[in-house]
Every structure is written in C-alpha cells, then in structure tokens.
C-alpha cells in the first residue's frame, strides 16, 4: 500500500463503485454514459453541465501531477487545474480519459483512454452563479 502521505484519488473512481444518478438510478462508475450526466444535470436545480475543451496539458513540478488548461463554457473561459496524472475526466461521447490511462487502469481498474488536447470534457457549474 502507498504511504499515508501519498496523494490518491477519491474512492468513487475505482471500478465497481456505485454511483447514484439524479433520478435515483444506480450504476457502476465504469458503465456511466454521457447521457447519464446530461440527464442528471437536467433534473438538478443547482448544477449545469459545461463543455470544457482541453487546450494544454503540461507536466507539473510536483511528481505524478499534470496541469491541464481548459476552455470552459460558451465563453471559453480559461481554467487551469493541477491533478494527478491518473485523475479521470469524462469526455463527451467517449468516456473516462486521463493523462496517464495506464496508471488509471493500474490503480483504479477503470477502463480509460488517453486525454488529449481538443478533447471535450464534462464539467459542472452552478446554475445561478450570477
């Protein structure tokens, strides 16, 4: 097992984790489809799905981390996040993708493809942000 100080992903990305959609339906994390997220957001009063396009992927100074720059929403606002290279993002029409899918598969057993510049990821914002 990794030392306690090693950063790790939250448990819900592990293959077999049970996810509850907004309508109450239960699905395994590896079985989720784009429509599940879209329909859940439609039901939600607070959350809205945004398209976030990957614009850049850079390695971080922190080992095992990457810096991903997204263009978020219709205004293509620039947002950068620093995440573990195995952190999975859900790509529209494709499924789970990460900077290092081999590591994601190894650590989480989650089937995953390589996240690339140009991929459009599902992200969330609050509906009444203004």
């Amino acid at each position: 097992p990794p030392p306690p100080s090693a950063p790790s992903l939250p448990p819900y990305f592990t293959k077999g984790s049970i996810i509850q959609l907004a309508d109450g339906e239960l699905k395994r994390v590896e079985d989720l489809k784009t429509e599940d997220f879209i329909q859940s957001a439609e039901i939600s009063n607070e959350l809205k799905i945004d398209s976030s396009t990957v614009e850049r992927i850079d390695s971080s100074h922190t080992p095992n981390f990457a810096i991903i720059q997204f263009a978020v929403g219709e205004h293509r606002s620039q947002v950068s996040v620093e995440v573990l290279v195995e952190y999975p993002f859900f790509v529209f029409g494709q499924g789970w993708s990460s900077c290092c899918p081999e590591r994601t598969s190894q650590l989480l057993e989650l089937p995953c493809t390589k996240l690339s510049v140009g991929d459009v990821c599902i992200s969330l914002t609050l509906k009444n942000l203004r």
């Binding site: 509850q20 929403g73 992200s123 969330l124």
Partner: peptide, 25 residues
C-alpha cells in the same frame, strides 16, 4: 453470522469537476 457490509453509494456529481470560471463583474 456476518453482517452484510453496506456498499457506499456516491452521487453522480462527485465524479465531475467543478470548473467554474472566475466571474468578472
């Protein structure tokens, strides 16, 4: 007898990152 372990259920939105751009008002 072994009590059945409760399986954790996670809400769908915990899987999706919040990428809220900074509001420029």
């Amino acid at each position: 007898n072994v009590e059945p372990r409760s399986v954790p259920v996670f809400p769908w939105h915990s899987l999706v990152p919040f990428l809220a751009p900074t509001q420029s008002d």
